[in-house]
Design a protein around this nucleic acid. Sequence first.
DNA 1: TAAAAATACTCCATAGGTATTTTAT
DNA 2: ATAAAATACCTATGGAGTATTTTTA
Lengths: 299, 299
Amino acid sequence: MMDEKLKTFLAVVRCGSLTRAAKELFISQPAITMQIHKLEKDYKETLLYRRERGIELTPAGKVLLDYARRIIRLYDEASEEIGALSGDIRGTIRIGATFTIGEYFLPSVLGHFKDEHPATDIILEIENTRRVVDEVAAGNLDCGLVEGPFENGLIYAEKLIDDELIFICSSKHKLANAPEIDLETLFTENFILRESGSGTRKVFEDALKKAGLDSTKLKDLIQLNTTQAIKSLVAENIGVTVISERTVRNEIQQGILKSIPVPSLDLRRTFQFIFKKDIQLSLITRRFVSQCRQNSVFR
Amino acid sequence: MMDEKLKTFLAVVRCGSLTRAAKELFISQPAITMQIHKLEKDYKETLLYRRERGIELTPAGKVLLDYARRIIRLYDEASEEIGALSGDIRGTIRIGATFTIGEYFLPSVLGHFKDEHPATDIILEIENTRRVVDEVAAGNLDCGLVEGPFENGLIYAEKLIDDELIFICSSKHKLANAPEIDLETLFTENFILRESGSGTRKVFEDALKKAGLDSTKLKDLIQLNTTQAIKSLVAENIGVTVISERTVRNEIQQGILKSIPVPSLDLRRTFQFIFKKDIQLSLITRRFVSQCRQNSVFR
DNA sequence: TAAAAATACTCCATAGGTATTTTAT
DNA sequence: ATAAAATACCTATGGAGTATTTTTA
């Protein structure tokens, strides 16, 4: 089970000698020799230079070492995951997220996750991108969800989704079927926005600031603290708003809400999952990651 | 070699029956039964519901199926890669890249790649992000390098680096030690830029356009078609320029060039490697990807 | 020449084969 | 009733052990 030959190969590399590996694995040294010979016969390449004091890897050995580690890791993860099928998964997961993702997207994911894994403890730390990246790199967090660019050689990043804020109005609004509109014209409309400090509001204000504009110019501001309430008010044609595209995709398809095209503003950002490179993720972390990938808020 | 039991399990799932799998693998049906029983004993879980017409996977079977595929894929890749160590790698790699990456970053990578793998054919298609994404998703390209956000469920994306354009001047320039500067002030300086159509120029003009500004306002424009020449002119204090940060990192560290902080403009983008999901990359593609990850232009 | 790896030889566990029975619908 | 899977039983391969020789710096 689980490819004893590859495990032996890993032990030999780790120990630097067949004899020491034999002691570590509690089998005889000739058994080790045989297993390595079998691998060398299978791959038709010498894997080890036999030196007087221990061994050294050949180029083929180096390639196999990399693959052997990944293969054995998968075997381990498979066992662990199948073993965890019966019985609750226990343990703690430490997640880092930026404000936008942590407050806006994660609550529903964490709800589902806690339902399915009631015996786990979840620690969510909301910080800015730089802090999340640093904490993941330092090993203080199991994974992170960030949207900004960052530089850190210890981090492996995988794109989750792109998020885009769009301007919307009711289908009865006078801008409902308008062609492209500039920001000055749009700013004369009544705006309904999330409160200051909300993720969405922050994305919007940051983009305005980057474009050299001032959000205080917005007219007759109505503030609400839920996306749903804002959508309802916009649908009632009380005003317009800026909102994450994926939260209104259905309403737009049904014709209840309309998107207002504003070409001069870029409100897109890429949500990324980040992990510490070369670290084996815990079972519970892998579960969380796979739930995020499947969750509808990230599709 | 290569875990016959897992291969048998995959064949059984593929065929939907032990008997059919036995025929496909040219071994007896009881042999298949035994191998599956061994797996079930190892993992202490039933893997298959035995139905009258063929089999169905249990939850544990589904988990193992996923891992078995990944494990067998790694075994295949290991064999292929070790086999390729002696003798040139042959074949064709079709790479898609955006203008910015394809013209600006890839040439040096492709140079090295062709040196190390002279027997390969490289097809580089330079298109916009949307086209590259679509062609990779359609299977017409082996991989893609893009910098923009995109939406496509068939695509797996992995961050490569973040690229940032910065404004620079000579250390003798009057802005060399200035604090934050707004764009209007900066635009009164002599600008030295790449020609229209260059990747860097396009990033810059796009960002200006997004910020509602006009690049034609730039004063006394000098145009050159190489980054090196621009760096030399800026160092000679002939003017200022906007340039990819990583191409001047050394000169800034040595104090030859200075970065001019302009807070109102965001010139960052994330370079991403993209692949078609659930497709096994060819050996040559994997080699190219690993060379890109290691190449200094992406660090 | 001394430590480490390879070989020689024996033994037994296990994987595979054929023939047959049991199971599930 | 019948197709498919499980079991019984036999054989042979190969992996592990001990004892010993060969290799390498």
